[in-house]
Computed example of a mutant assay.
Amino acid sequence: MAKLGDYEFPEIGLTESVELTRRIYDKLGGEVRRDALAIVLGMSSAGGAFGARASALRIWGLATGRSSIELTPAGVQVSSPTSLEEEAQVMRRLAASVPLFNELHGRIGDSSVDQSVLAAMLQEITGVEMNEVVRRVAMIERIFEGIRGYLNASVDLQVEKNSMSRIGTNIENLPEGWMEFRYDDGALRMRETAANLDMLIATLESRRDRLSG
């Protein structure tokens, strides 16, 4: 577990943590002893690399427990979503589950900032010495950038079930400035913004990784 002041943050990104969560769900039944999971991953249960992954599952809200790791309801939901819309929604909730990243997002929004500005913000938020911030800022920047598409995504998101039979008949009903993604049992609609496109791309990449795995 990594901390800046009173703020803990995951050392492993959300996408990688969700991939591990899905392995636990698909291959291990949703619950596994810590030492057994380490063996599955080819790591030492006492090692820092494994500890970082286990802590990230907890911080992202994907799993609980120490000697035994059990998926949370959110961990189960993101491992077996019933639709693309449900997957996008739960990923957005998970992305918003880390207070430090929420503080950063509140200050940055969808703007671009360089690492020196980010470091200054982190010092202001956490109150720690700048040398400690500098030691952590590259990791925080990498993980934060990985979830910004979800944090920036508009709340204007709709789902229409069983729409495939109506392809070509309701395009005129799509509001101006909105986009629609159709899949086998419905259609995902959202405002056409850069943030929503980022969220959709990230969600599709996650689904692709799951299918290829």
Rank of each mutant, 00 (worst) to 15 (best):
M1Q: 11
A153F: 07
W60C: 10
M164A: 15
D185K: 14
R166W: 04
L41A: 02
S83G: 06
G61E: 02
G65Q: 02
S97M: 10
S79H: 09
L200D: 07
L100Q: 04
R58I: 12
G65M: 03
K27S: 12
M130P: 02
R148K: 09
M121Q: 06
P10V: 11
V113G: 00
A96I: 11
L71Q: 11
S17Q: 03
K27L: 13
R207D: 05
L4T: 04
L4Q: 03
L118F: 05
R189C: 13
H105N: 13
G61I: 04
L188N: 08
L84N: 05
L94A: 02
D114Y: 02
I108D: 00
S97F: 10
P10Y: 09
A46D: 15
V78S: 05
M91S: 01
R33N: 03
D184Y: 13
P73L: 08
V113H: 01
Q158S: 08
V98H: 05
T126V: 04
G149S: 13
L200Q: 03
M139D: 15
L71K: 12
G5F: 02
Y183S: 00
A49K: 14
E19Q: 13
V155H: 15
D185T: 12
L204N: 01
S97N: 13
E87I: 00
I12W: 08
Y25H: 14
G5M: 02
R191T: 15
R136G: 04
D26I: 02
R182S: 10
S111I: 00
E124V: 06
M199E: 00
L94P: 04
P81Q: 04
P99S: 11
A38S: 00
A63S: 13
I171L: 15
G106A: 03
W178T: 06
V32W: 08
T64A: 00
I39K: 15
I167T: 15
A202I: 01
L104P: 03
L84H: 08
N102G: 11
G75N: 10
L100T: 06
N162Y: 10
G42H: 00
D6V: 14
A120C: 05
I167Q: 14
R107Q: 09
E160G: 13
A195P: 02
I24D: 09
F101W: 11
L84K: 05
I12G: 06
D156K: 09
